[in-house]
Design a protein around this nucleic acid. Structure first.
Length: 132
DNA sequence: ATTCTAACA
DNA sequence: TGTTAGAA
């Protein structure tokens, strides 16, 4: 089932189409590329060509933004997803130790909270209101 | 007609 | 982020 992923990776849409599909401005789309969140291909005329995967990411970014997550936070999310895939491939060769399980669980709980803080070190604490 | 880069009353 | 100028 690799053929499908291959097609989703084909860069076939010009930015105008992506704008309509995502309801994002060209400025925003290019900016997110600058932030390394997508890496559209370029055609012969130096025009950006986007894949379905690129569009999916753009749509996700829009959702994250709507949820109040800033660029720094969104970058972290994708950085983490990359790291998680590296883990899954490492886990394929090396049996999972219980220390691994601890770390994975820990990161997962963190992932839900860290997102509302920016890099400048806010203290936007979100408390799990436990009644005393 | 579309998209690109660079820049900012 | 918006917008705009000048080029491709």
């Amino acid at each position: 089932m690799k053929e499908k992923e291959l097609r989703r990776s084909l860069s076939v849409f010009p930015i105008g189409t992506v704008m309509k599909l995502t309801d994002l401005t060209a400025r925003q789309i290019r900016y997110y590329e600058e932030q390394q969140l997508i890496q559209p291909q370029r055609n012969d005329g130096n025009r950006r060509m986007y894949s379905l995967n690129d569009i999916d990411v753009l749509l996700e970014i829009k959702d994250y933004l709507a949820e109040g997550i800033n660029m720094a936070g969104i970058k972290h999310i994708y950085e983490m997803q990359e790291q998680e895939q590296e883990k899954k491939q490492a886990a394929l060769k090396r049996p999972v130790t219980d220390e691994d399980v601890r770390r994975i669980f820990h990161d997962e709980l963190l992932q839900q909270g860290r997102l509302n803080n920016d890099e400048q070190g806010h203290s936007t604490l979100f408390h799990t209101h436990k009644p005393l």
